[in-house]
């Protein structure tokens, strides 16, 4: 299958006090349609930097990133982003927040009723239809993140970029949102690139786990292909030896090969 996203010898440098700081080097990755890819690594390894490059929020200093064979030169609605801290606009209700995205993508072609239907459908998908007219501060952290996901999905993006989407949530809420996301992915067949530092989350959700070496000058260390059947059930997998093996492989990489030197 032709890849949606191609990352070809990408490097990223930032100006620093003493010359330049090399954050990423020699990144090569191709992502196929419908694939769920997790980027994992110790903090500071540049996984978020890589995601921002795909999102087009920053430009790479070396190499080239392609989406549908076109160079990524800036953000675009075909690459929706779910931010770590939901980033809902606090002065708008949940439905207005989603509408802002829907309007931008479909506003030219579709009437008001159709747009509203899209908003409602997106919020229904994450079971937030009860909060259409609630403001973000009136709902819990997990609910806000659901709305954030709904906003991204409502744009019908070619690829969904998630930056530690559940990082700010407690363990139980995180688990239920992971299951929900798995359900949504099964329904939509979406392509996802997800930054995480949660090994279980990576194995549970993704088809491939891209493990990154420690920065500076981080690059892709190893890639684990997770060959577990879908739909995946958290409880069944807990007993599954393959799940344990994938988990062990990622832990092995993170804690034996890439152990952070503690100063």
């Amino acid at each position: 299958m032709k890849p949606i996203v191609k990352i070809e010898s990408v490097g990223q440098e930032f100006p620093a006090r003493a010359g330049r700081f090399v954050a990423l080097r020699d990144i090569n990755l191709a992502i196929s349609p419908g694939e769920v890819v997790a980027l994992i690594g110790h903090s500071g390894c540049g996984k978020s930097t890589l995601l921002n490059l795909i999102a087009g929020l920053t430009r790479a200093t070396h190499g080239v990133l392609l989406c549908d064979n076109r160079e990524i030169t800036g953000p675009g609605p075909e690459r929706a982003v779910v931010f770590q801290n939901h980033s809902l606009l606090p002065w708008m209700t949940c439905s207005e927040n989603v509408m802002l995205a829907v309007e931008r993508v479909f506003g030219r072609k579709e009437g008001k009723a159709k747009l509203t239907a899209r908003v409602v459908a997106a919020l229904e998908m994450v079971h937030m239809e009860h909060a259409l007219d609630k403001y973000p501060h009136e709902i819990s952290g997990g609910m806000k993140q659901r709305v954030g996901i709904a906003r991204a999905f409502a744009m019908e993006p070619r690829i969904l970029l998630m930056d530690e989407p559940f990082g700010a949530l407690d363990a139980l809420t995180r688990a239920s949102l992971q299951d929900e996301l798995n359900g949504v992915l099964a329904k939509t067949g979406a392509t996802v690139v997800m930054v995480t530092h949660d090994v279980d989350e990576a194995v549970l959700l993704s088809d491939r786990i891209v493990m990154m070496t420690n920065g500076p000058a981080a690059t892709i260390g190893e890639i684990v292909t997770v060959d577990l059947p879908r739909p995946r059930d958290r409880l069944e997998l807990a007993e599954d030896s393959r799940f344990a093996a994938y988990r062990a492989a990622v832990f092995e990489f993170l804690y034996r090969k890439q152990l952070k030197k503690v100063a």
């Binding site: 999102a55 675009g76 609605p77 690459r79 606009l89 931008r104």
Partner: peptide, 16 residues
């Protein structure tokens, strides 16, 4: 910065 990033990702027009 998050809000401005949202604006960029959604590709909102300058007046919006």
């Amino acid at each position: 910065q998050d809000y401005l990033n949202v604006a960029r990702v959604l590709g909102l027009s300058e007046d919006k």
